[in-house]
Design a protein around this nucleic acid. Structure first.
Lengths: 170, 170
DNA sequence: CATATATTTCAAAAAAATTTGAAAATAGCA
DNA sequence: TGCTATTTTCAAATTTTTTTGAAATATATG
C-alpha cells in the first residue's frame, strides 16, 4: 500500500526527488545544530518540500523509519510548532504539513530550550555569590571579577534572545 | 602526589569548593548547549574559578577523569581559545588558565562551528534551485516559495552572526 | 645523547542517545 | 457499544558519542 503510494505519484514526484533529498540533508544538518535527532530533521526536510500533507505512515515509509520514530519525531516537531496538521475529508488519519515560518520555529526553540537554561543560570549565579570567600580572603578580588563576568554574560544573553527573535522576523 | 596537592591547599581551597562545584555544573550545562562533551564543561568550570593555573594532571585528578580525557578536553578548549597556558618557572608542564572573555570563546565558536554550516547551506540551496521542477509544473509556485524562504533564512543568519558577535562585546 | 617526564593518540570499553517493534491506549465509526 | 484504524508509549536493540587506558610520541634536562 505504501509502495503503491509511491508508484501512483511517481511521474509527478520524481521531478522533485533530488530536491527532496537535498531538503532532507539540509534540515538534518540544521536540526542537528539545534541538538535535535536525525529523524526529526528527516521528517521536517521531507515535509518542507511536500505540497500535500502526509500521514504518519507515509512519512515513515518514505523515509524508511519505524512508525515509532515517526510518531516521536512528529511529536517533537509539533511541540516546536514546526508542523501543523491539516484535515482531510473522509480520512481519519492526521495529515502533516511543514510550518514554513522559521521565525515561529526558532522562537519556540528559544523559549522552550534556551530561556529555561538562562533562568536557572541566574539562580546558580546567586548561589555562587553566597559561596564566595570572604572579602579578606586572598583571592577575593579574583572570585569577584569572575562572578561579575558571569552576571554580565547572563545579562547579555537576556538581551540577546529578544534581539535574536527580532532579527528572525524576516 | 595529587592527593597531597589537594591537602596542601585545603584550608585555602575549601572556602571555594562549593563555588567550584557550582561553576562546574554551570559550565557543563552551558557547553552541552553548544554540543560540547561533559568533560570539556567540567574542565572549563574547574579552571574558571581557579586563581592559579593548573596542570593537566591536576585537572584530571581533581575532576577524577583520565588524563586522556583531560588532554582531549584541553585540546578542544584550546581550539576554542577558551583556555590559555601560562608559563611557570622551573616546571616543564603546561599550566592552564581559563580565558574568561566569553566574547572570544563565543566568536571562535560561531566562526568555527556555525559559519561553515552557513556556507554549505548556501551551496545546497543553489543545488536545490537547479533541481526545481519546471515553471509549467503543477506545484511550481509552491516549490518556488519554499526555496525563497530558505534563501531568506540563510540571508538572515548571515546578518545574525555578526550581530550576535557584536552583542557579545559586553 | 640518554633518561625521565609530559602529552597525545587511538583502539577498546563504557555511557548516552536514538531507533525499533510490539503492546497498550486512543479515537472514529457502524 | 464493539470493532477497527491510528497513534502513542516504552523496554530492548542499535547506533553514536564519550571516556578510558595504555602505547607511542614528543620534550626538557642533566
Amino acid at each position: 500500500m505504501e509502495a503503491d503510494d509511491n508508484n501512483s505519484l511517481q511521474t509527478k514526484d520524481n521531478i522533485s526527488k533530488a530536491l527532496e533529498l537535498e531538503s532532507i540533508d539540509f534540515f538534518v544538518r540544521l536540526m542537528s545544530l539545534l541538538g535535535l535527532p536525525r529523524s526529526v530533521g528527516e521528517i521536517y526536510g521531507l515535509l518542507y518540500f511536500n505540497p500535500e500533507a502526509l500521514t504518519m505512515d507515509q512519512v515513515a515509509s518514505r523515509l524508511e523509519i519505524s512508525i515509532g520514530s515517526a510518531s516521536q519525531g512528529l511529536k517533537t516537531l509539533r511541540s516546536l510548532k514546526a508542523v501543523k496538521t491539516s484535515y482531510v475529508q473522509g480520512d481519519r488519519r492526521d495529515h502533516y504539513l511543514a510550518e514554513s515560518e522559521f521565525r515561529r520555529l526558532f522562537s519556540t526553540f528559544l523559549n522552550d530550550e534556551i530561556l529555561p537554561h538562562l533562568e536557572s543560570a541566574k539562580d546558580r549565579i546567586k548561589r555562587m555569590e553566597q559561596e564566595m570567600p570572604m572579602e579578606t580572603s586572598e583571592h577575593f578580588e579574583f572570585y569577584n571579577i569572575r562572578i561579575e563576568k558571569l552576571k554580565r554574560l547572563t545579562k547579555a544573553s537576556g538581551r540577546l534572545l529578544p534581539a535574536l527573535a527580532r532579527l528572525l522576523k524576516l
